[in-house]
């Protein structure tokens, strides 16, 4: 399947997405959804890019990487620095600012991809737990370097980033990212990645250049993480080292495994579900506090969250989707001769 087939293979998916987009926009304009929930939706969409891109590395290629937010940081700081500098020059008008943002997003992806490639090349020789530890370390190294770089604000963070992200941009960038990654998964590249995950030796013996494909998965995953980071910092108007630390990376990892490793649908469900769950729990605890005879601390939110994660893992060990995909995410030409592996 061709990776560049963005529309012809996805008429249903695109139609469904556009309807969703229009509905959310109308609800926003009519005031049913306030800015707060739109903001949460934006974060959920960015989390979709992060989770699907990490799933490409962990779930499809089977390379256990846990430093994903490091690459998001590279993207965020690359794009954030660029737009902030140009913004201060005052040359951007209402149209060119979006052109600027488009360029910044692509550069963010490219910068993260380059870092991903450079880290992936030596580390992907390692397997399993060893790879996990090294990717964790690299993620932290990126964060520490940013922390120590005064030019981008160091521990104070990069401030004054123009607000260029909005629901429309985030929505369509997410849709495009998911379609591209979905196409990769269903292409021969995807098949090579799955063969590496299943059995590296057998994969080598059928002639797959496993180093090349592992590094490719890592580079593509980093590219999209970089784009997600850039979207995020132009939404929050700040890039801060703590956003991109170890805890953030673990959150993305949790989304991948709760949704189901090796399922794009699962990553989408988990990214949206966990982002909103976290907010619902916050509201729930606030409301509980009003009626409870004793004070309920906000830390209970994380306890409930953790219990729910444990419950999902107990009852659905392969994640919510367990490696299956929604029909709408299966390429149309693939769907015709589908052979049981799709839901």
């Amino acid at each position: 399947m061709k990776i560049t087939k963005l529309f012809t293979n996805n008429r249903k998916l695109v139609l469904f997405s556009v309807i969703f987009y229009v509905v959310v926009d109308v609800l926003h304009l009519t005031g049913v959804l306030n800015d707060y929930w739109i903001q949460i939706t934006n974060v959920a969409l960015i989390n979709i890019i992060l989770a699907v891109s990490l799933n490409l590395i962990n779930g499809f290629a089977g390379q256990f990487s846990i430093g994903h937010m490091g690459f998001a940081a590279v993207g965020a700081y690359t794009a954030g620095t660029l737009t902030t500098i140009i913004w201060k020059l005052g040359v951007a008008n209402s149209i060119t600012k979006y052109l600027l943002f488009a360029v910044a997003l692509i550069l963010a992806g490219v910068a993260a991809a380059i870092v991903g490639y450079l880290i992936g090349l030596p580390t992907l020789r390692l397997r399993g737990d060893y790879l996990a530890i090294v990717t964790l370390a690299f993620g932290e190294i990126i964060r520490v370097i940013i922390n120590a770089t005064g030019y981008v604000g160091g521990p104070r963070g990069l401030l004054g980033i123009p607000k260029l992200s909005n629901f429309t941009i985030i929505f369509f960038v997410t849709l495009l990212s998911v379609i591209i990654m979905r196409n990769i998964v269903f292409s021969t590249i995807g098949r090579a990645l799955k063969s590496i995950r299943e059995d590296e030796v057998a994969s080598e013996l059928v002639g797959v250049d496993i180093t090349r494909y592992k590094v490719l998965a890592f580079t593509i995953g980093s590219f999209f993480a970089g784009i997600a980071g850039a979207l995020l910092c132009h939404l929050l108007q700040i890039a801060h080292p703590t956003q991109f630390g170890f805890i953030g990376s673990i959150n993305v990892l949790v989304m991948v495994y709760i949704g189901g490793a090796g399922s794009i649908s699962g990553s989408i469900v988990a990214a949206v579900g966990l982002t909103f769950l976290s907010e619902f729990l916050r509201l729930g605890i606030d409301n509980l506090n009003k009626i409870a005879p004793f004070p309920v601390g906000p830390e209970w939110r994380m306890v409930v969250y953790a219990v729910l994660l444990v419950a999902v893992m107990l009852y659905r060990t392969a994640g919510i989707m367990g490696g299956r995909e929604f029909g709408i995410l299966v390429p149309e030409e693939e769907g015709k001769n589908a052979t049981g592996s799709q839901a």
Binding site: S195, E198, V201, G340
Partner: peptide, 9 residues
């Protein structure tokens, strides 16, 4: 050493 989670095809 077949690929267990992939189909025969």
């Amino acid at each position: 050493r077949t690929f267990p989670d992939l189909t025969v095809r």
